[in-house]
C-alpha cells in the first residue's frame, strides 16, 4: 500500500488555543479516512491546512511523498468539497464543473468530454445548463462533487458533505458516497461531526479532541476498543456512570468489583447493546458481564423502540438505554451489558 497523504507533527495555534497539536495522520491508496470530533476539535483546521488555507506553525504535509507544506492552495492538486457547496451562482452547472479544467488550460473538446464524464458519473447530465439556484440541495451537492473530481485530484477533501441535507437523503447519500469513492479510487479525507456517518462510510477513522488525534483505526477498532473515556463516550450512543472508589483500591459497579489505582472510575455503557429486563427475570450472566439494578424514571417512544431513563441506586448519573420491551415509569429493572459492550476507565 502506498501512502498518498501524510501529515507529520502538524501544529497550529490561534492565540492560546491549540487547533492542531502534533497531528499525524496518513491515507493509503484509495482509502477513506474520516476525521471526527466535536466542534472545535480541530478537524476542519486539519482539512483546511491540507488544502493550503491554514498556515501551519510547524509540521509537514506530504502528498505522494512531495512536501507541499509551503505550496499555495492552487498548486496542491487537492480538491476540496465545501460544506456550503460554494457553487458559483453566476455560472451554469457545466461552467462550474469545467472551471478547474479551464484553469488548467485543457482544450475545449477535452473539457467537454471530462465534464460530461463527471456529470454522467454523478447522474446530473440533464442539469448541465441550470444555474445552482435552480437545483435542490442534493443536486447542488452532486455538482460540487463533480467539480471536485473532474480535475482528478491526488486527494479529495470533504468538509461535512452531508450536513446540509435532510436526514432521509443523508442516509441514502451515505451509501452512494461510499460506492462512488470506491469506484473513483481517490484517497479521501472526510471531516464530519457525525460519528454514525463516519462509522458507516470510512475505511479508517481518526478521532480528534482539543487539536489532538486520540485514536486512528478501522471503524470496528474504534468502536470495540476505544483507547480512552472520551472516545468511548463519543462513539456510539452511550451512558456514562461515574463511581467513586469506596474502599481500599476497590470499586463496586453493580455485580462487578474492580481493583483500581485512581479515585474515580467511569463506566461507559453502549446504550444500543444493553438489555433492559424485568427485575425478577432470571438471566445467566457470564464472567465479566455487567449487571445493574435500577428504576425507570422516564421513557421516550422512538418508533421501533423506547428510550428509558433509568436511575441506579447510589449513582448520580442517569442511564439512557434503548429497549424494544415495554416498561412503565417507576418499574424496577435490571440492566445487562455483555463484556465488550461497556468500558471502564480510571481517572
Amino acid at each position: 500500500m502506498m501512502v498518498v497523504l501524510q501529515t507529520q507533527n502538524l501544529c497550529k495555534s490561534y492565540g492560546q488555543v491549540k487547533a492542531l497539536d502534533d497531528v499525524n495522520v496518513y491515507i493509503e491508496d484509495a482509502q477513506l479516512l474520516a476525521v471526527i470530533g466535536p466542534s472545535g476539535s480541530g478537524k476542519t483546521t486539519l482539512l483546511r491546512s491540507i488544502a493550503g488555507f491554514v498556515e501551519l506553525d510547524s509540521g509537514k504535509i506530504l502528498i505522494k511523498s512531495k512536501d507541499v507544506t509551503n505550496l499555495p492552495p492552487e498548486k496542491r492538486n487537492v480538491a476540496m468539497f465545501f460544506q456550503n457547496y460554494a457553487l458559483w451562482p453566476h455560472m451554469t452547472v457545466f461552467e462550474n464543473v469545467a472551471y478547474g479544467l479551464k484553469i488548467r488550460k485543457y482544450d475545449k473538446n477535452t473539457i467537454r468530454e471530462r465534464v460530461e464524464w463527471a456529470l454522467d458519473f454523478l447522474d446530473i447530465r440533464s442539469l448541465a445548463e441550470r444555474k445552482p439556484s435552480q437545483l435542490s440541495g442534493g443536486q447542488q451537492q452532486r455538482v460540487a462533487l463533480a467539480r471536485a473530481i473532474v480535475i482528478q485530484p491526488d486527494v479529495l477533501l470533504l468538509d461535512e458533505p452531508l450536513s446540509n441535507l435532510d436526514a432521509k437523503i443523508r442516509m441514502r447519500i451515505r451509501f452512494e458516497l461510499k460506492a462512488l469513492q470506491k469506484r473513483l479510487k481517490i484517497p479521501t479525507l472526510y471531516v464530519t461531526h457525525d460519528q454514525e456517518e463516519a462509522l458507516s462510510i470510512a475505511d479508517k477513522i481518526a478521532i480528534m479532541h482539543n487539536g489532538k488525534v486520540l485514536q486512528v483505526g478501522t471503524p470496528e477498532e474504534v468502536y470495540k476498543n476505544p483507547v480512552d473515556l472520551f472516545i468511548a463516550d463519543f462513539i456510539g450512543v452511550n451512558s456514562v456512570v461515574k463511581v467513586k472508589c469506596a474502599g481500599e483500591k476497590l470499586v463496586e459497579v453493580g455485580n462487578l468489583k474492580l481493583p483500581v489505582q485512581k479515585e474515580t472510575v467511569y463506566v461507559v455503557i453502549r446504550a444500543e447493546e444493553t438489555k433492559v429486563l424485568p427485575i425478577q427475570q432470571r438471566f445467566d450472566i457470564a464472567e465479566g458481564d455487567l449487571r445493574l439494578e435500577g428504576t425507570i424514571i422516564g421513557k421516550l417512544y422512538l418508533g421501533s423502540k423506547y428510550r428509558y431513563e433509568i436511575k441506579i441506586e447510589g449513582v448520580d448519573e442517569v442511564l439512557f438505554i434503548n429497549s424494544e420491551e415495554v416498561y412503565n415509569v417507576n418499574e424496577q429493572v435490571q440492566i445487562i451489558s455483555r463484556k465488550g459492550n461497556f468500558f471502564i476507565y480510571e481517572q
Partner: peptide, 29 residues
C-alpha cells in the same frame, strides 16, 4: 462575499487575478 467561493476557485488552481475576474467581479456586479 463568502470566502468559500474564493477558496473553491483557489482550490481548483485559479490564481488571485483569475479569481477576481471569474468569481469576485461577476458575483459583485
Amino acid at each position: 462575499l463568502d470566502s468559500s467561493y474564493i477558496e473553491a476557485a483557489r482550490n481548483l488552481g485559479a490564481s488571485k487575478g483569475k479569481i477576481v475576474f471569474t468569481v469576485i467581479i461577476p458575483m459583485c456586479k
